[in-house]
Nucleic acid binder design. Structure first.
Length: 265
DNA sequence: CTCAGTGTTCAGTG
DNA sequence: TCACTGAACACTGA
C-alpha cells in the first residue's frame, strides 16, 4: 500500500468518509509494536466522542486531526491499509484501529506485517518523524535549481538518495526506479556526479510520475503501459520492458533495483 | 522450508 | 558530527 500515491489516495478516501463526523466507538488492538508502546486505553480515551476535522499528509505519513486533544499519526509500513465498511463483522484479524462514527459507519486501519505505526501526537507537522521529512514530492514545488545543489552534496548512489525521505518525502522503491528509468539515469551513479541536465530530467520525471499515479488514484492498472512498473516485479531474469529491452536486477541501498542498461547511462 | 518484500530505524564504520 | 551501509524489525505468501 505504501508509496506516496497510495498514501494520498487513502488520505482522500478518509477525508471524504470521515471529515466532520463524530467518533462513537473505538477498538484498538493490543499491539505495542504498531502503537509504539501505547495501550488500547490511551488510544480509546483520546478518540472517543471526538469530532474528526480532517486528514493531512506529508510524505508517507497521514494524520487525523480532531476537535480537541492530540492528532492520530499513521504510517502504513509495507502492508498498512485503510478500510471503510458498514458492518462490524468486516473487522479482520489484522485490524489495529477501528472507529465507529455517529452515522454507524466504520473506519479501520489494518497492518498485516506490523511494520506500520499509529501514534498520538499534539502537533505532528512540527514533531518527529514528520518534521524530519524533506519536500513532499506531490505537494511541494520541486525544480532542478533547488535539487541540483542538494544532489551535489551527496556521495551515495542516486537511487539511494531518491529513497531518502529527508530529501524526497514520499518516494519509495518503485517510484525511484521508475524515475531513473524514464530519466535515463543509471541508478548506481553517484548523486554528486550527475549533471544539471540529469537533475532536470530527474525532477521532471519525478513530478510527472507522482502526479499521474495520484491522478489515477494509485490504481496500477491505469498506470501508462510504457512504465517500467508493469515489468519490474518478480525478478524474472527474462524480464523485458515495454519496448523489449532487458531489465536487470541489482541491489542498491539494500533494495531490489530494476533498471534497463540499454536506456540508463 | 526458505526467502523476498511497495518501509524505517539504528548500530557500526569511515 | 556527518554520511553512508547493512541488518533488524515482523510476518505473509510464493
Amino acid at each position: 500500500m505504501p508509496e506516496l500515491p497510495e498514501v494520498e489516495t487513502a488520505r482522500r478516501s478518509a477525508q471524504q468518509y470521515l471529515a466532520g463526523k463524530r467518533i462513537s466507538a473505538v477498538y484498538a488492538a493490543r499491539d505495542p509494536i504498531v502503537f509504539d508502546g501505547a495501550g488500547p486505553g490511551k488510544i480509546n480515551s483520546a478518540l472517543k466522542h471526538r469530532k474528526i476535522l480532517c486528514f493531512s499528509r506529508k510524505g508517507k505519513y497521514i494524520w487525523m486531526e480532531l476537535d480537541s486533544g492530540p492528532s492520530v499519526l499513521f504510517h502504513f509500513g509495507m502492508t498498512g491499509r485503510f478500510h471503510f465498511y458498514t458492518d462490524k463483522a468486516q473487522r479482520c484479524r489484522f485490524c489495529k484501529l477501528e472507529l465507529r462514527t455517529d452515522d454507524g459507519q466504520f473506519f479501520a486501519m489494518t497492518n498485516k506485517r506490523r511494520l506500520g505505526r499509529i501514534r498520538l501526537l499534539d502537533d505532528p507537522l512540527n514533531s518527529p518523524p514528520v518534521i524530519r521529512l524533506g519536500f513532499d514530492v506531490y505537494s511541494d514545488p520541486i525544480d532542478a535549481s533547488g535539487i541540483y545543489p542538494l544532489l551535489r552534496k551527496r556521495k551515495a548512489a542516486i537511487k539511494a538518495v531518491l529513497l531518502d525521505q529527508k530529501l524526497f518525502a514520499g518516494v519509495g522503491n518503485w517510484i525511484a526506479d521508475e524515475v531513473l528509468y524514464q530519466a535515463g539515469v543509471d541508478p548506481r551513479r553517484l548523486a554528486c556526479k550527475l549533471s544539471s541536465d540529469d537533475a532536470k530530467r530527474i525532477c521532471r520525471c519525478l513530478k510527472r510520475i507522482v502526479k499521474k499515479a495520484v491522478a489515477v488514484s494509485a490504481d496500477k492498472k491505469r498506470f501508462p503501459k510504457t512504465w517500467l512498473f508493469h515489468c519490474r516485479w518478480g525478478k524474472d531474469p527474462r524480464a523485458r520492458d515495454h519496448y523489449g529491452d532487458k531489465i536487470h536486477f541489482t541491489q542498491i541501498a539494500g533494495r531490489t533495483t530494476a533498471w534497463v542498461p540499454e536506456k540508463q547511462t
